[in-house]
Design a protein around this nucleic acid. Structure first.
Lengths: 340, 340
DNA sequence: TTGTAAGCGTTATCAG
DNA sequence: CTGATAACGCTTACAA
């Protein structure tokens, strides 16, 4: 491996000069610049990341923490991870993948060993235990999700309150008077995972505002859970004609159950799902859905960090809530059409 | 941030001594060892990763390359990524997440900048363009997947030939005489992605051996593709009673289509899927499946790299094919029972 | 068993 | 516009 010095010698300049043509932090004559560049190419020189990190106190690495359990929001997480990676590369950063299991200790580890310059956290709960660490250590951080008190933190998320509201309004607008909300698993509500609670809030207030009946059923990812949830809904609330599904894992189960129960979609029951577009388009009928903008969340999180790093930790923290986008597809229709 | 020197001063020893109690590379008296350790704890010292990498020429980082397209084997990729991360941590390594899009250049970049000590590649094609780079650069590498010529390379994968065979044998053993194989999308075969071709091989030879009829239908991840594939099968091969599904994304669609077509599972048609167990258990009926051991693949890939790194690049390359495990669940039954 | 000191490859300050 | 030259924080012979 060629080193900076090798390049300098080859080009007949000082090492520092090579460094400067690379960083552009001070003007270099076009002449020498060209010479250096060609030496670099010739020797196939690549700056050593460790040395760079040591000398500059910057690793150019972002740490991304994802939930360990591989059954939680899988497609969304994957999309976020890829979005983050792609965006980070565009800024010259690499991404370190870590699991939430390491928790607070993990954050401390990567930060105090200077392995990463900043962190991105996911699966945020309202009173996330990692936040005190974030605050006290002053690490540049971006949360994908919003805690109860986001003061001074950079957060990005879908506006889940508005999203929940939007789902209800869409159904209410189509004339549905009884709506069921198939939420996430109970565990998420117990953990007070922010997005789950916020969606529920939005759904509830919108239902109240619109004067439509509402029942909320948490639902795990198994077929049985889906079956149980649906059965209770059909039994206790037989007039339900609108369904909002948040746990994307049960979408196929729900569709299948409804068919078995003899309820046609959308004729008998309309469905709106909260999920990535791609998933909404893989079913039949295609689902009217509230887009889960996972890639965008990743990109924005990275952008927030770049801002922070540029401002050298200053800046006051800001919460970016992406407005929900509902796309009507084949799974919703007016209640009237269903009754004929 | 406390440095090694701070700790040394505080403990009243030489810097090297601190380093040695940390690395264990030379004996240290219990007495001083304790003193050092307590100083470390007291000062909350964490070794600087960059400095360490520079001095030791080891970054303690593994680079994991995953496909960019977020719709390709999502659950499997996610599970592999988490498996790799968890296993790597257990060995004191961190994981850098990179996309295949960077391709060969990406490998060169992380390796020649010494950002990572070794790489893990996924989505391997038979004549993968990245392999020459691997060979010439001599980077420790582990492939999740097997190319046509794996000489000198460390590869781990499910034994897809045996897996394909196993699926057919299971169905044939239950008396099915006409089998359809719903494969991956055409694009994968065109790219000669190893596992797709190998599965097909296994399925074909086993069908020939068992003397059962077989038709292979590549299938993309959309509902339409699934519908098209199934329609052709039912039309051209009406006596088909056994289905093998490899593209896990169409599993829900297939189940739904079969129901619509009035074919009961498993009474009229038996299904065996190649997918993670978790997915096989989320449907109704639960699917007889050939386990996709994604976590295990990640773990083994890391183990292979640890071996390589220990042997300092020596070692001759070895291909580890995990034997397929078929779990009978509710989606397969004897053909006879179906005919009554 | 422990200390000393020479790097590792960059960056950045200070001169010129 | 360019050259020297200290750091940066750690590892690892080499001595003692």
């Amino acid at each position: 491996m060629a080193t900076l010095d090798d390049v300098a010698k080859h080009a007949g300049v000082a090492a520092s000069t090579v460094s400067y043509v690379l960083s552009g932090k001070r003007p270099v004559s076009e002449e020498t610049r060209r010479r250096v560049l060609s030496s670099i190419a010739l020797l196939n020189y690549h700056p050593n990341a460790g040395a760079r990190a040591l000398a500059s106190a910057r690793s150019n690495v972002l740490a991304l923490f994802v939930p360990l359990r591989p059954d939680l929001y899988v497609p969304v997480m994957m999309e976020i991870a890829i979005g983050v990676t792609t965006a980070a590369r565009a800024h010259g950063y690499d991404v370190l993948l870590l699991t939430n299991e390491e928790g607070t200790a993990g954050i401390k580890r990567v930060v105090s060993s200077a392995r990463a310059d900043a962190v991105i956290l996911t699966d945020i709960t309202l009173h996330d235990e990692r936040i005190p660490t974030l605050r006290s250590s002053g690490v540049p951080a971006a949360l994908i999700g919003v805690p109860a008190d986001p003061t001074d933190l950079d957060c990005v998320d879908l506006d889940f309150v508005a999203a929940g509201r939007s789902c209800v309004e869409h159904l209410a607008g189509l004339g549905h008077r009884e709506i069921a909300f198939i939420g996430e698993s109970e565990a998420l509500y117990r953990r007070h995972v922010g997005f789950a609670e916020r969606t529920l809030d939005g759904v509830r207030t919108a239902a109240a505002d619109a004067g439509v009946g509402l029942v909320h059923r948490p639902c795990e990812s198994s077929f049985e859970a889906a079956a149980g949830a649906l059965a209770r809904i059909l039994e206790e609330r037989p007039r339900t004609t609108g369904l909002i599904i948040q746990n994307e894992a049960v979408i196929p189960s729900m569709l299948s159950l409804l068919r078995t129960a003899g309820r046609a979609v959308p004729e008998d029951v309309s469905i709106v799902a909260l999920c990535p577009d791609q998933i909404a388009e893989q079913t039949s009928p295609r689902l009217t859905s509230l887009t889960m903008p996972a890639t965008e969340l990743g990109t924005r999180a990275v952008a927030a960090l770049m801002r922070r790093l540029r401002e050298d930790g200053a800046g006051s923290g800001r919460v970016e809530l992406l407005p929900p986008v509902l796309t009507a597809r084949g799974s919703t229709t007016t209640r009237e059409s269903g009754e004929q």
